[in-house]
Amino acid sequence: MVAEAEPGPSIVERAVAGDEVAFARIVAAHHDDLARIAFFVSGDLDIAEEAEQAAWAVAYRRLKDLRDPDRLRAWLMSIAANEARQIGRSRRRRTVRELAVADRTPRADVDHAAMIDLANAVARLDDRDRAIVGLRFIGGFDAAEIGRELGMSATGVRVRLHRLLERLRKDLGDD
């Protein structure tokens, strides 16, 4: 059986009241989104995993402050992006990186060259821009929703996204 998303007010209220099963359902429903945005912002699987774990703790603590349950998905993703950014910054200060040797078998159906190009292009963006692009293309949110989560105006997000996409289009050679 697969856990289904139940983003309605009832499940949020139950989670706020301390129902661990309700919160587990929120976790199951939004795990993929949080993992994706954390990885997109950090570019590192370990950081993404740590960021998601930290994000759930923050989310539970602040869940009672979420006034509009319809915002739950965007709110959770912005927390994960924030955690990934902060953990990534602290990790970059270290001089030793963990080695990953033959960790996974390459998938035949994935264009690895394209993935490397994308990873490099994304890595050249700053943390804030990666969060904007991630919320747009992983979360599918519009400028107003992104702006609400990031504390920016919708117009500001729109302009920023336009410039970022131009830059990414150029970096990826997609003219």
């Binding site: 945005i37 997109f40 699987l45 993935m115 994308l118 692009v133």
Partner: peptide, 12 residues
């Protein structure tokens, strides 16, 4: 780009 991002983040 959205498709590539989804493929790129699939591993996570």
């Amino acid at each position: 780009f959205a498709e590539r991002v989804r493929a790129y983040t699939q591993v996570a």
